[in-house]
Write a protein that binds this DNA or RNA. Structure first.
Lengths: 167, 167
DNA sequence: TTTGAAATTCATTCATC
DNA sequence: GATGAATGAATTTCAAA
């Protein structure tokens, strides 16, 4: 479904989504009209979900990050979805993971200082009755992979590939 | 340091980093040359770190996500930094958090299936002697905030602002 | 700093391969 | 599907406010 050219393009656009289509074409070794068509197809197929500016949290005055694990009791659909919607909209929240295991949520927050972190936990989270337990880990460092690659294809040749007679 | 126009621009570019500068200018209510200059300044100041295409993990054949907490013993700088560099480069790794608390790392991974997850834990992680404990949580859902906003300014007027005589 | 207009570069289309 | 030439749009510069 994705060939080598698609993979090269995805890698390039994850590194810099705003390089010109001409530069992209040069980088992957095709004509600009070709890369333009490929990018459009990747977007339409939903492989590319969008293009986002990445901001520097320190420059935004939010120098303290934490991962807060939250346990919801009872973990009913109503409670889980209600909490998810609520916590997603808080200005301190950067990301929310709904998880299996000891906790039901991991909340990635960024706040100006440790006071802000403490306030988030004791003022905001504990006002929700379904929050049964909270555990805070300060994030010393957060690294993202420069690009997410497609999974290596599994299994042998497909039926379609095996279908033709050998030349 | 950031005025209202900067905030509007940051919000727009976090939602869509590839909208044309003309559309951006219209959205924030200034001339294209103004928004262009502001965006350039935000990039140079390091407020905008870059522009990234966001990919659909399912479409890349990586439908299973997990957060894996890892405890390193002893948690010396050598061990922490060594493990961080190693784990950041694994193809399964999407993001790495270095944290305080019970664990030293939270590793966000995406793999094709639960077999891939199990293999990551029992083949890859456990081959590192400094890994003392591992705990896996499957990620049912991952939501990012649509835009990260600057922290609300704290404190009263600065010395500079107070410096002038009243009119 | 912001702006409008000029100059330049780019995206996009499409006939052809 | 991929390409290059043409066309239409956009970015980018800059003098002026």
């Amino acid at each position: 479904m994705l060939d080598e050219l698609d993979r090269l393009i995805l890698r390039q656009l994850q590194k810099d989504a705003r390089q010109t289509n001409r530069d992209l074409a040069t980088a992957v070794g095709v004509a600009p009209s070709t890369s333009l068509e490929r990018v459009r197809a990747l977007r339409e197929k939903g492989v590319i979900r969008g293009y986002r500016a990445e901001v520097n949290l320190d420059a935004l005055g939010r120098e303290v990050q934490a991962m807060i694990s939250v346990r919801i009791r009872p973990p009913s659909r109503r409670n889980i979805e209600g909490f998810r919607e609520w916590v997603s909209r808080l200005p301190e929240t950067i990301a929310v993971f709904v998880t299996s295991g000891r906790q039901d949520f991991l909340i990635h927050v960024a706040v100006p200082d440790t006071n802000g972190l403490y306030a988030f936990v004791i003022d905001r989270l504990t006002q929700r009755p379904e929050v049964a337990d909270v555990e805070t880990s300060v994030v010393y460092e957060h690294r993202r992979a420069p690009a997410v690659e497609p999974a290596r294809e599994q299994g042998g040749p497909s039926a379609a590939q095996r279908g033709g007679a050998a030349p």
